[in-house]
C-alpha cells in the first residue's frame, strides 16, 4: 500500500476516518465526505479498504461513490468554480455565463484547466435564486455574477485578496 509523506499509509488514514464514525448509523456518506476532505478526492484504492472495514461488497461501495456528483475520482484544481444552471439563474443569463466561463478558462463544464488552476462545474441550485446568476467558488457564495465579475473574483484570489 502507498505510503504518503506524512508516513501513514492510505489504508491507515481511511481506517482512521471509518473509526471516527464507528457509532454512526449508515455512516458511508459521512465517511466518504471525510475521505474526500482528507485526500481531496476519492481514489479507487480506498474502495477495497472501505469495503472490508464496513463489511460491504466493493461493488456496493463503488456504487455509492459514483451515484453522488460531489465525490470526485481525481483532485480538483486550485479553485473550484461552480456555476448554477437551474431555472432561476437561467432567467437572468446563467447559460451565457457558462459559455463565457468555458471560453475564459478554455475548458468545458466538468473539466480542470491544464495548469490545474480552475475546475469548472455545473450545479443545480445554490439557493441564491433572487440574486442570480449564482456561483460558488471554493465554498464561498457569489451572486449576480457575470463574465467580468467572475474574472475579477478569480484575479483577486490569485493576488491574495478576497476570497
Amino acid at each position: 500500500m502507498t505510503i504518503d509523506s506524512a508516513g501513514a499509509s492510505v489504508a491507515d488514514r481511511v481506517r482512521a476516518v471509518v473509526a471516527a464514525h464507528r457509532d454512526d448509523r449508515g455512516a458511508l456518506l459521512p465517511i466518504l465526505h471525510d475521505i474526500q476532505a482528507e485526500f481531496g478526492y476519492i481514489d479507487q484504492a480506498v474502495v477495497p479498504v472501505l469495503a472490508e472495514e464496513l463489511n460491504m461488497s466493493r461493488a456496493d461501495v463503488h456504487g455509492v461513490i459514483t451515484f453522488y456528483s460531489d465525490f470526485r475520482s481525481e483532485p480538483a484544481g486550485a479553485a473550484t468554480v461552480r456555476l448554477c444552471r437551474a431555472e432561476a439563474c437561467q432567467s437572468v443569463g446563467a447559460e451565457r455565463l457558462v459559455a463565457d466561463a468555458e471560453q475564459v478558462f478554455g475548458v468545458k463544464l466538468g473539466q480542470t484547466t491544464p495548469d490545474r488552476s480552475v475546475t469548472l462545474q455545473q450545479v443545480f441550485c445554490l439557493g441564491n435564486c433572487a440574486l442570480g446568476p449564482a456561483a460558488e467558488i471554493n465554498g464561498r457564495p457569489f451572486g449576480r455574477v457575470d463574465r467580468s465579475r467572475l474574472i475579477e473574483i478569480l484575479a483577486s484570489r490569485e493576488t491574495g485578496g478576497a476570497p
Binding site: C84, A86, E87, A88, C89, F124, C125, G127, N128, C129, A130
Partner: peptide, 11 residues
Amino acid sequence: DEGDSGTFADR
C-alpha cells in the same frame, strides 16, 4: 435537501 430552483426559504 432543498434542491428546487427558486426555493431558498429552508436555507
